[in-house]
Design a protein around this nucleic acid. Sequence first.
RNA 1: AGGACUAUAGCUCAGUUGGUUAGAGCGCUACCUUGACAUGGUAGAGGUCCCCAGUUCGAAUCUGGGUAGUCCUACCA
Length: 937
Amino acid sequence: MDKTYQPQAIEKSWYQTWEKNGFFKPSGVGESYCIMIPPPNVTGSLHMGHGFQESIMDALIRYHRMKGRNTLWQVGTDHAGIATQMVVERQLDAQGISRHDLGREKFIEKVWEWKAESGGTITQQLRRLGASPDWSRERFTMDDGFYKAVQEVFIRLYEEKLIYRGKRLVNWDPKLHTAVSDLEVISEEEDGHLWHFRYPLTDGSGHLVVATTRPETMLGDTAVAVHPEDERYRQLIGKTITLPLVGREIPIIADDYVDREFGTGCVKITPAHDFNDYEMGQRHSLPMINIFDNDARTNANVPEKYRSMDRFDARTLVVEDLQALGLLEKIDDHKLKVPRGDRTGVVIEPYLTDQWYVKTQPLAEEAIRAVEDGDIQFVPKQYENMYFSWMRDIQDWCISRQLWWGHRIPAWYDRQGNVYVGRSEAEVRQKHNLPDDLSLQQDDDVLDTWFSSGLWTFGTLGWPEQTDLLKTFHSTDVLVTGFDIIFFWVARMIMLTLHFRKEVPFHTVYVHGLVRDSHGQKMSKSKGNVIDPIDLIDGIELEDLVAKRTAGMMVPRMREKIEKQTRKEFPNGLAAYGTDALRYTYYSLASTGRDIKFDVGRIEGFRNFCNKIWNASRYVLMNCEVQDEQGNRLSAHDCDQDNSGGYELSVADRWIISRLQQVEKAFAEGVESYRFDLASQALYDFIWNEYCSWYLELSKPVLTSADFSAAQKKGTRRTLIRVLEATLRLAHPLMPFITEEIWQRIKDLAGVSTADGQGETIMTARLPECEPGKIDQQAMADVKWLQGVIEGVRNIRGEMNISPAKSIPLFFANGSANDRRCLDDNRLFLTRLASLESITWLNPGDTAPMSATALVGDMEILVPMAGLIDVAAETARLNKEIDKLKKESARVQGKLGNAKFVDNAPAEVVQKEKDKLADMQAALGKLEEQAIKLATL
RNA sequence: AGGACUAUAGCUCAGUUGGUUAGAGCGCUACCUUGACAUGGUAGAGGUCCCCAGUUCGAAUCUGGGUAGUCCUACCA
């Protein structure tokens, strides 16, 4: 084995081996376990959020696979209507072609071409993470099979009157020329103005002042509203205004929606271009005058002078003209929320169009109940509130999009505008007895991408066919997702699946946090703080990283800022940490919080952890094999690989086996409660601070000393290799590559059976589980004693600056029979680990040399000072210890002196405090006595 | 405006049903190339558990009220 861990040397080849051998497929035996991947956008590439999410899913999948479950991780990508269409349009744009030049069919061909060439980026990157989904079942939401499911759902919902078509105000993206859902609109506060206009009364008796943030919409005003009880305007209700610039006579109406306090208390009403005005328009049967076209340019419904203008140019002109007429009262600065499309960034226009809707109310009721009844559980639980609050106030869902790329709506129209819904034109004709010469035209629109991804859990398994897969794996076990798409996706999946399958899509929704940079900032291209997970795996030079982060940055000032910040934060670029280290970092951060700050400092620690495992394994192999100088195996020592027995286990062996059982339990608890931070922490502690720091050191005396028998050596070799082997299996779900690599090298020595294809890969080996019978309390107590003595000696050494190379004599005083037994049992371990020159047991009455002292329970351990220790230094060390004990014992004494505590607290708590005090006072006495002795020197 | 979440060591975070001498990793200090590992070892320093009040014998933990931050939902033209 190499002296250091080299991830790049092992990762790719193991992955290929696993995939080639079909290890990712369901085994076909055992209880099913299934996770559906949230299908990543086909245009996407892997970011830190994906990395985190996929790592968690893979850990769950590998864990349950190793527990013997029939495990399916369903993988696939989403066709992402808007995003994909934009990518391909941009490419065409570069050649000076628009999609309209090509026409719909040719354009869709181009999209498929693009998908074939570039659509696999993210799935290749997923492989680099070590993800183990069943690639043979990979699906795409635009597959024919999936389309069948989408069509079926649309038709059935239509027939059940849960889908309808209507003319409504929608969020219109004038750049994309499509409706978008509320969720795709981001409203953020921006600086704007509040314009105050005078609207003259038709009867010439004066004017009203209205305030608006969007002056251009006045061209579509059909009323002015005031509050019914507003004394200032009461007498005007029912009168009319002559709309300036337009000349239209519009009524002054009363509606208690109007806030008397805001602005002037008069509101201009534009029902066709504002959601609130729309509702008011309906209440008062106002005309709706649409003043824009699809580009949000003014149309023929406005006076000649203002036609065919961009909405913002129209705004300027309207304001100018009103001012010229003396109707502009004032302009105030005003902060307002501006709705922008999350893809395009352009201002979204409320716009009247014909769209298809899903009536969500009835679906939502079922979906709420499923969570209320606990059929679906959110982890952490508080996300259920978020889910309920949205569900209980749900709006009908606009599912049509004016795009070309997507599932085309299965509806046909005749010349009269009658609608026929069906699987095909032929089916529609047959069903409705339509004559052949009646011309029919299919709806041009496609469905919202989330409509199809809402069917993901059952659509991928073959529905509407009743497949075996569906029977076996649906409902799935857990959905792993970010809280940002609970509404977009999770809620819709629950609604649609309950309706069509009469069962939940998944039993648990594990909601994880969102990955941010080390300062808690969202990672985004525009901020230039993105870290590519692949760069953490492979490493990247500083110059390449800078180039990558500033690519496409148009504003030079931003470019400079990002470059500077990148050079400062990563002066040496990023090292190649490897997949396992990256994954472990993710797990360690996966607690219940909502934000996950990713600090590159942490991944380095886990790379070191991998190296630790690597080198511990190297040590184990060196001791279980006879090796040549290159470390190749010449022959094997007897490690009981043939299960012949005849070995003896030391205290250390029994201790590490006990601790292994306990960590297996802690790990399982962590994983099963989705606390990967706790699971990974337990494993890390065990491997580094127990197996490596103590057990390997304790094995050295046994293996290198002639004082131990062959049976004892065999016992220790057996334990070394078998505990390592079990630990690798335990760690495999978190760090798949390094565990497989090492496991393959040690499995035969650990006696892993190779019968029945077992032992082919660690992936399908059994996860080790806690066997309480193997926990040996005596061994645990004895090792604790041993550690106490060794740490006492090391403390003296460390603080007294005694070279570790120097062997020192050690005396034991005031020891009990148990101390004596422990010493006798562990003399060799002690001598070696504390590098002792001699050990002397003092009986009562024996005189001890002048020494530095440490306490292990009631027993004192003494390191003679002669020639080693400075009196002043030892006095200082003792005093520090004495101070600490004094403070603490005073505190406990106070507590015990409090009658209320003694009377009210449970007896065992009081007793515990009493014992604590007694121990501390005994220790204090000894240390003080020692201090006095030193002082008299 | 309503709601949620967060606040613990210089930094990133754990802390289970109230009883711990409040922990880990990174960073820091000193010493150490000892035979698995310097991507290492040993020892050490470092905390008013955001603030105030309350419940309790006892609060990092429970309750109320603040403060700060993050986010969601709904918004006033």
